[in-house]
Design a protein around this nucleic acid. Structure first.
Lengths: 368, 368
DNA sequence: TTGAAAGCGCTAACAT
DNA sequence: ATGTTAGCGCTTTCAA
């Protein structure tokens, strides 16, 4: 199976290449890094020599001498999430175009684990880091500060942070969702939230829901907030539990679209009509939300854009440019996407609800 | 906002630490890398000094001297896929436990782009690489070979490959799915496939479908194979087109669960009963497949396991151990998961189909 | 068992 | 504009 191969080409280093090409290693290096400093004729020769030798720079040596690695680290809670995956794509797109590579690690929603991963990446010499949210280990932040490693945090908004943040205000966004449900007449809510411990985004969303309800004189007792990991299965279990309650909520606010999808499917399996008997909302607007029947009412998070803005902010800081003015704390407005999972509570409506969800499927037109 | 900070600790390097601790840099280095070579007393002192100084090794210097980076690279078609995300998680789990970090790049399903990314990662000095499938740029493979960089390929099966492969046989698996539909009486098929150009997995799945059909004397004309990018929207469009045909297929084989989900939702939106009027199958068994109504009949791909097996194979090769015997070409058997999207074609059944999909929801029991 | 010293391959001052 | 030279911070012989 393993065939014999020709011997390895012997020209691996610049020094060797310098000797056999008659061009000094310094010039060769310049051609690689600052070609404009080398006269076109020589540059051409050098490039030919480099190409002909199939020269591949030695990153470690390069980094040791230049003190940069052209490498960025990112730690997300998990890569197995439609949202964070898109953020990663956004980061990659921007970074790869600029010749950077991306270390990806996951924190599993634990600040301690995040700190470990960050440290491992700092050891690898990353030129910058992207993180998620506001909840971080103090020692980790101190390490980043002491080492002067630029970093940004994403998917949240924190105008007080001493570093750039790229995201949105989870409290305000969640509030808007609840406000909408209140506007159309709902008063009896339940929440299927993500696990809130160490998760500022999940916590803030619940805060937003609660604030909206209380502002209208209602309340959201903790018994009405079910915390669940972000899986479809767990969301179904939570919804199943809610449906068993003597007094069912008329609307269920979910911590994200995965939870909303699970909640919705459980209703469908139990022949509970959505939105006639119960309304459901999500958060993130992942692809599925637009296409399932009924479509999920949610807030659109421009995840790709957030990734690419984060990359841009990082690159700017690395290059010594301060992030463009007013860009230190990008706070995006999330669009409210009304779909089929929400309607006024049935008590509020004059006639019997239609037997089936609406047939119209506008999502076929657009792509989000 | 930017407060003044205490000056940076001055002890950054081993040399400095050596001077102020009275322990030589060599010993300090040994304590870090081969602690068993240092007598316990000295080792203790050294560790104390290291810890107290908050010493963080300099990866580039380390790599330059030791010729390893404790870094692995992986290039997947896209990170924004439930399947590849899980493979990445599997890789991370195993790798992080061993002190490796992961570079993640995406090929966007293009071998040329994959080659670029691999080269960039080789420049970064990765100790090993994980790739997807069998379709690769020849120059890229040559680079990996010349540099003696261990690599594995995943999500396919190729017993002829000169490197370890971890995955399953897409032809055989697809065949099994089609066989099942044939067994329950289907004869009129359509396929919603992934884009096959440069995608061996997508191509082989269609081959498998076709082989099964032809083996029973049927045929799968190219007009019945619609190629689409792996998005829910595109799958819906494909299914909409199929539903418009004068002679509808009784079963639609989809290239993966995302396509199957889209196909299913389009049927639901159009009030086409699944599986009574049309059967649908997926591939991968992503979480959603178990929970939507009806559940999607599919093949279960143990993505997490594949990631972790790939990591194990890589680590074994890096450590100079050959992958355990028989492990060079791991070919996993995929379990066929029968759910609600498949049933015998209606012509084959005695009575009228039930008006609604089945209520039973076994997926609540297990987690996949 | 420990320390001294020689690089690892490159970049960036510094000379020319 | 190009070449010479001195490190970058660590690991790893080698000698003691």
């Amino acid at each position: 199976m393993a065939s014999t191969h020709p011997p390895l080409p012997t020209t691996r280093t610049l020094k060797e290449l310098a000797q056999r090409s008659g061009i000094s290693a310094a010039t060769l290096s310049r051609v690689l890094n600052h070609p404009e400093l080398v006269r076109p004729v020589l540059r051409g020769k050098a490039q030919a020599a480099l190409a002909q030798a199939g020269y591949v720079p030695h990153g470690a040596a390069r980094s040791l001498a230049s003190r940069r690695t052209r490498t960025i680290g990112v730690v997300v809670p998990t890569v197995d999430s439609a949202l964070f995956a898109k953020v990663l794509e956004g980061l990659q797109q921007r970074l790869h175009r600029t010749g950077y590579q991306l270390f990806v690690a996951n924190s599993a929603y634990s600040p301690g684990r995040e700190a470990e991963q960050v440290r491992a990446l700092v050891e690898r010499g990353v030129d910058g880091m992207a993180l998620v949210g506001s909840t971080h280990d103090a020692g980790m932040l101190e390490l980043l500060r002491a080492r002067r490693i630029p970093f940004v945090t994403t998917c949240h908004h924190d105008p007080g942070a001493a570093w750039p943040t790229i995201g949105w205000d989870n409290v305000v966004a969640a509030e808007r969702l609840a406000d909408y449900l209140l506007d159309i007449g709902h008063r009896r809510f339940a929440v299927i939230a993500g696990v809130m411990a160490d998760n500022d985004r999940a916590t803030q969303r619940v805060q937003g829901f609660r604030r909206a309800v209380e502002r209208r004189g209602g309340s959201l007792p903790t018994a009405c907030v079910i915390e669940k990991p972000y899986t479809v299965l767990e969301a179904r279990r939570a919804m199943a539990a809610l449906l068993r309650r003597p007094q069912r909520p008329t609307a269920v606010l979910c911590g994200n679209d995965i939870l909303a999808f699970g909640a919705l499917q459980e209703c469908l399996w139990q022949d509970v009509a959505v939105p006639q008997q119960i309304s459901i909302t999500g958060f993130d607007d992942i692809e599925m939300a637009a296409h399932c029947r009924p479509g999920i009412t949610t807030l659109h998070v421009p995840a790709l854009e957030i990734g690419s803005l984060a990359a841009a902010a990082l690159l700017a800081t690395i290059d010594g440019r301060a992030p463009a003015d007013g860009d230190e704390h990008v706070c995006l407005e999330l669009e409210l996407i009304l779909r089929g999972t929400t309607a006024p509570p049935s008590g509020n409506r004059p006639a019997a609800p239609p037997a089936r969800p609406p047939r119209a499927s506008p999502a076929m037109k657009e792509n989000r």
